[in-house]
């Protein structure tokens, strides 16, 4: 569709344009060195040039904590609260996070589609932005480059003087209605380079992982892994959740609450009676990596890792998913050379 140009000087006007018509969520500074999606009020606080946000836009469709139902213990009845549609414009989403939304869609909308997720998800419109890969990004290795417009309604590509605007859907065109932009015909800037890479394509990775079940890397990683669950909780494609009942102090009412959970946490597979099916941290690490590069990928043909680098950037023990995977690849290649 049409391509136009948004000068840097008009970016604030553009945000104001969106904000007066829609609820807008965009990246803001959080803490000293981080960014997070928040609802915009001050357009000047929006940061379109950022390396990554702490949590992805996942939090709007699958909230970290959510009440599934309220119950009355006197009558033994439960009611599900009304789920509010998000119905918002997400400004400044990176391509890997949009790829992650698709994966969440797959989980929550195939098989038995979940209402809570769908109600929140269906009104969302996305304005993607390009980014400059930092030392943690490796999205290129899973086929998602910084200019990938898949999933965006409008996409903004960084240009020295502003942003090249691609309108990709009818919804995107509607977002720009009333905000005139000059057309743009120049070629896009050159591809940005990633500094982090996984050195084989996804299809052979599945095969390598298949053969790496007993690889020493799992135990080696377990020595430093603190099993804190951070890697799961920051991952934009992790969707596992736990459900627990809360009861009011008065003892007559309560609610069933769900919250994000993580397969790196020891209690994740615990069943009544106390058996834990992945007791060892090494087994949990392997499960996590296989979840991202094998199990769901075997079923769908898509890697379930989008290369955002969050798990590595946030790991409290400095464990790198790229290092683990490359180690497996290197050892598998060495093995092949020896046997060949």
């Amino acid at each position: 569709m049409a391509q136009s140009f948004l000068e840097q000087a008009r970016v604030l006007d553009f945000i104001v344009h969106l904000q007066t018509r829609h609820t807008v969520y965009a990246p803001h500074r959080r803490g000293q060195r981080s960014f997070a999606f928040e609802k915009t009020s001050d357009p000047a606080a929006v940061e379109l040039d950022y390396p990554r946000v702490l949590g992805s836009v996942k939090k709007y469709f699958l909230p970290p904590r959510e009440t599934l139902m309220d119950f009355d213990l006197k009558t033994d009845t439960a009611t599900a609260p009304q789920v509010e549609p998000v119905n918002a414009v997400f400004l400044g989403v990176h391509s890997y996070d949009l790829a992650a939304v698709k994966r969440l869609d797959h989980n929550f909308l195939t098989g038995k589609p979940e209402r809570n997720y769908l109600v929140r998800r269906q009104g969302a419109r996305f304005i993607g932005v390009s980014y400059v890969p930092d030392k943690f990004h490796f999205a290129g290795s899973v086929g998602i480059d910084p200019y990938d417009m898949t999933g965006s309604d409008v996409f903004l590509t960084r240009h020295p003087d502003g942003w090249i605007v691609d309108v990709l859907t009818g919804e995107g065109a509607a977002l720009l209605q009333g905000f005139a932009l000059p057309p743009h015909a120049l070629p896009k800037p050159k591809r940005e380079h990633f500094t982090q890479h996984i050195y084989v394509p996804q299809d052979s990775l599945g095969r390598i992982l298949e053969a790496s079940y007993d690889h020493p890397v799992w135990n080696e990683t377990a020595r430093s892994c603190l099993s804190c669950g951070t890697c799961n909780l920051v991952c934009p494609t992790c969707y596992c959740f736990n459900v627990e009942d809360q009861v009011a102090v008065t003892g007559d009412s309560g609610s069933r609450e769900r919250s994000w959970d993580g397969c790196m946490l020891r209690g994740f597979t615990e069943v009544a009676g106390g058996e834990v099916f992945r007791e060892k941290s090494a087994a949990r690490q392997r499960h996590r990596i296989y979840r991202k590069f094998k199990y769901l990928s075997d079923a769908t043909g898509q890697p379930w890792c989008v290369g955002c680098g969050r798990c590595t950037a946030a790991c409290t023990a400095g464990i790198s998913i790229v290092d683990i995977v490359n180690r497996l690849i290197r050892d598998a290649e060495r093995e092949e050379k020896i046997t060949a």
Partner: peptide, 12 residues
């Protein structure tokens, strides 16, 4: 196994 949601969503 620890089946929490029963509908293929929660991952447990």
């Amino acid at each position: 196994r620890r089946m929490k949601c029963g509908v293929g969503k929660c991952g447990h």
